[in-house]
Structure formats: C-alpha cells, structure tokens
C-alpha cells in the first residue's frame, strides 16, 4: 500500500445510553403526564468524549493514557469508525487496521486458518490478498499446526496472537491498538513491540491506548492524556507519563 499521509482532526461529542422498550414506554408515559417535562432520571446522557481535537501524522506512534473510563477505547473506536460521532468529524487517510480486543470476532467452530480469511475479508482484504499473506500471518502468530484446529480450542493468548498477526499483516496505514501489547508471553510482546518500531520507520501511524507507562515511554513518539473525555495533556511521552503518574500517585503519598 502507498504510505498515505494521515491527518485526523475531529471534534467529537458522544453520548451513550441504554434504551429498552420499558424505558421508552415509561418515558412516553412520563411525557404524557408531565406535559413534555422530562425527568432527568430516565434519560442520562454521558459524554464519553468532549471537544477532542487531535491531529496525528504519519510516522507518529501516539500513546493514549488515562484512568479507566476516561474515553481511551471510545476514542479508538471513534477513529476506527465503529462508533459514529455525535458531533464533529473524523477524517482518516488510508486503511485502518484495528484491534480492540483479542479475537472476539473469531468464529469458534472454524479453524484458525478459516478465521484468517473471514477476518481478513471483514478488514477489507480480497481473498487473493489474504492468500498472499496467510503464511506470514501464521508464522508471526507462532501457532504452528494449531492453525488448522478450531478456534474454540485456542487459549486467549493464542487468539490474541492470531488477531494481532492479522491486524499488522493487512498493511494498515493506521494501526489502532487497545491494550494489545499485554497479550502473549514475553517473547511475543518483544516481537510485537519491534513491529511498532517498524511501523514508525515506514511512515505509518500507530495509536495505542495503554496503562503501561513503560510501553508509552519506550515505544511512543507522542502521548495524549485523556481525562473524563477531554484531552488533559498532549506532548512528549515521558513528560505526559510523568505528569500522569504524579497525578494518580500523588494523593496517596500525601
């Protein structure tokens, strides 16, 4: 693939609500009785991300840090187009490869090899393109003969390795990873880490959400600190990590 230049700039506001028929019904009744007045109890709007402005360029490895629920995954999912934006817009140049969680999209009854074809196709590869890459994918995943066993027999580590291997071999221009480098054993992690360096070298973009400050400082060229859906800090990874650690551990020491 051509190394397209990537520019992501967007403003996003995103709300999440669980709606059941009962709630809708109750809300309707509510509206009848109160003549249009809406009780806040029945509709809770949660803005997982608010006014996020971010531009990421090719060659950057961006780390996203932040406590649980700060919007890291939401941001990645919005970038991947999985969650539609409620406000603002997202612009991505090039093919996106993403891995939010490990192999959850695999079909349990099919073999690993069959799943590579299904997943590759969903990721936008043609049958021929998958066939060209299948050997490299299997080799990288280190699954060996297990590749022809049904995926239901895989351990979560094996699924994660296969998922990661597919994601990097589709030659994405933008790779989105959510906590992925915690998968697999130490040697696989090291290999996966070096892949990130290769991505950076070939002018592609990687965005990682992680809780591992070590990883952020070691692999990233830039870091963003998300706090309750807003960008708190954007800059050099070691400075962001330092500030983030100071904030989260500071109160305990005091």
């Amino acid at each position: 693939m051509l190394a397209e230049n990537l520019a992501i700039s967007f403003q996003i506001r995103y709300h999440r609500s669980e709606v059941t028929i009962r709630e809708t019904f109750v809300r309707l009744l509510d509206r009848f009785h109160r003549n249009g007045h809406r009780d806040g109890r029945w509709s809770q709007v949660f803005w997982a991300l608010q006014d996020v402005n971010l531009a990421v360029y090719p060659g950057e490895v961006l780390g996203i840090v932040g406590p649980n629920g700060s919007g890291k995954s939401t941001l990645l999912k919005a970038l991947a187009g999985i969650l539609g934006a409620d406000h603002g817009r997202i612009e991505v140049h090039g093919r996106i490869g993403c891995l939010m969680s490990f192999g959850v999209g695999f079909k349990a009854n099919l073999s690993g090899r069959e799943n590579v074809f299904v997943n590759g196709s969903i990721l936008g590869l043609s049958q021929r393109e998958v066939a060209e890459r299948i050997d490299k994918i299997i080799e990288f995943s280190e699954l060996g003969d297990f590749i022809d066993a049904p995926v239901r027999t895989y351990s979560s580590g094996m699924k994660g390795r296969l998922g990661f291997s597919i994601a990097i071999h589709i030659d994405p221009d933008v790779l989105l990873l959510d906590e992925i480098l915690t998968v697999g054993d130490a040697s696989f992690r090291a290999k996966a880490g070096s892949i990130l360096d290769r991505f950076r070298g070939s002018n592609k973009t990687v965005i990682i959400a992680s809780h591992s400050m070590g990883l952020i400082q070691k692999r990233c060229t830039r870091a963003v600190w998300l706090d309750r859906g807003r960008i708190r800090m954007d800059g050099d990874p070691s400075e962001v990590a330092k500030a983030y650690i100071a904030e989260t551990e500071g109160p305990k020491k005091a």
Binding site: E4, R89, I90, G124
Partner: peptide, 13 residues
C-alpha cells in the same frame, strides 16, 4: 490492490 477506500471521512452525516 485493494478495493478499500483510500480515504474515508466520517462525520455525523
């Protein structure tokens, strides 16, 4: 190579 969109823009539209 691939038929995948080379550039995609998603917004609220």
């Amino acid at each position: 190579m691939s038929s995948v969109v080379a550039s995609n823009v998603s917004s609220t539209r």
